[in-house]
Design a protein around this nucleic acid. Sequence first.
DNA 1: ATAATTGTATTGTGCACTTAATACAGTCAT
DNA 2: ATGACTGTATTAAGTGCACAATACAATTAT
Lengths: 128, 128
Amino acid sequence: MVWSFDADRPIYLQLVEHIQQKILNGEFQPGEKLPSVRDLAATAAVNPNTMQKALAELERGGLVFTQRTSGRFITQDAAKIARLRERAALNLTRRFLADLTSLGLPPSAAAALLAAAQKSENRSDVSD
Amino acid sequence: MVWSFDADRPIYLQLVEHIQQKILNGEFQPGEKLPSVRDLAATAAVNPNTMQKALAELERGGLVFTQRTSGRFITQDAAKIARLRERAALNLTRRFLADLTSLGLPPSAAAALLAAAQKSENRSDVSD
DNA sequence: ATAATTGTATTGTGCACTTAATACAGTCAT
DNA sequence: ATGACTGTATTAAGTGCACAATACAATTAT
């Protein structure tokens, strides 16, 4: 469980995405109880206030609900989770194609790029 | 020329990426003179200080250089631009695959997603 | 020469994010 | 009942981002 943060974006939003991912990919199961705010904050090495803000934000998506004094739980609606996972995958794909277009590459370039990327699993390569 | 900004990230960084894109995709040609800081700021509807910060940041990448009192210019090194475009495309692809993995999908799912995304060019679909 | 245009620098203000340190009310185990 | 947990709220401090309003030196156009 690695909690690393991009310095260029609010931590609490990255926490939201991080946790959302764990729900969508099944690391957190439907109905499962989440660790407490304080525990999650300690694990992620952030302030409890920041984690609280992230969790509050997460509830607006309906993936998580709170039982006032006993804790937070993942939604039991497995269908909803599956639906959101598919939508997330489609959105990622659309953004990928849009980014390629911004670089001046046609969507048809995607296939070759995917093949190339899977061959060389090396360098992470930041800009320069 | 649309300059729209994501509220969740620093504007000056988005400006950097925006301009970098225009260089990599050929909208800005090698050797071409850039509009002045003030003009660019007006076009993007941001404060000149913010645009100045973005441009200063851009020079660290070597895609742009300054002639003290006459203006800023795109590098004439077309090979460098081409090299960076290829690298950018590969990085985008790697991130796409990594994001799919985070969703619990195998890289082999990419092909089907690309096909699906190109069929339905509709909804932008944000979370919920 | 004068005026306009270049990049650059400075000072101040407002706002959001993050951390820290507490505090409170309700639930649960003992 | 007591103590340890839950989520939640508040106040204070520090930081970075963005804007506003100027200002200056050097080049370019007139």
